[in-house]
Nucleic acid binder design. Structure first.
Lengths: 117, 117
DNA sequence: ATACCGGGCTGGAGTAGCTCAAGGTCAAGA
DNA sequence: TCTTGACCTTGAGCTACTCCAGCCCGGTAT
């Protein structure tokens, strides 16, 4: 699979994929005889996971650490699990923030309604 | 109220407040005889709102637009309401993303559990 | 009186995480 | 053959902070 397809499947942009690869976030990307990147289904799964981790605010450095562990194989699964558990905590925190902000907006909008009447 | 107190009350950092003011996001900040910023309770409420809007991903440009409307007074309330309604939509989208990512992590963690047994 | 804080000020440099643009290669279709 | 389109690399630009140097000022300790 070429980079454009990898982009449309993973959700990441073409430029972002190249950038991530350069930063060591995407292990084992092959190249064809023409020098172009070739992505395996496993690459795609990995990119998709990165997409979601980024989308929900995992910092670059953590992603790098996670990718380094992934590249080392199965004996790092415990460590990877810990990272994902930490990220789950972050998700919960973000959800609280969203809820809190939604409340604030609701109140603010009610006040605006008053003015408009 | 001085800037450090404004920071601890709003949630924004001191540097961020100064930056926001320079970018036109904080109307009507007074100065004392010593040349230092003085924040009114209304300033604090506004900064707190900005804090939550930023925290939930409102882009700078939208905040600038919102601040410009706020500075113009009550006749812009409809426009401000529209901005907050749009932002509410964004919050809903983010919430969906968080939920989706949480699902993905849960599945991933289950797979890791398999390996670890 | 003076030395030393802590907190404020400005201007400017540095950072993260992309994002875009310039300039080049190459394979396939009209 | 010519052109188009997808890919390549390198490097600049952007957003939204974040930090730092160097200065001022008011209050306390010596």
């Amino acid at each position: 699979m070429r980079i454009s397809e990898a982009a449309s499947r993973s959700g990441l942009k073409v430029d972002t994929i190249r950038y991530y690869e350069a930063e060591g976030l995407v292990p084992n990307v092959g190249r064809g005889a023409d020098g172009q990147r070739r992505f395996s289904p496993e690459n795609i799964d990995w990119l998709t996971l990165l997409y979601w981790l980024r989308e929900t605010g995992m910092p670059m450095k953590v992603m790098q650490e996670f990718a380094a562990l992934y590249a080392q194989g199965e004996e790092t699964i415990q460590a990877r699990k810990d990272i994902l558990l930490d990220h789950s905590d972050l998700l919960a925190k973000r959800r609280d923030d969203l809820d809190r902000c939604a409340d604030i907006l609701t109140r603010k909008l009610e006040i605006y309604e008053e003015y408009l009447r």
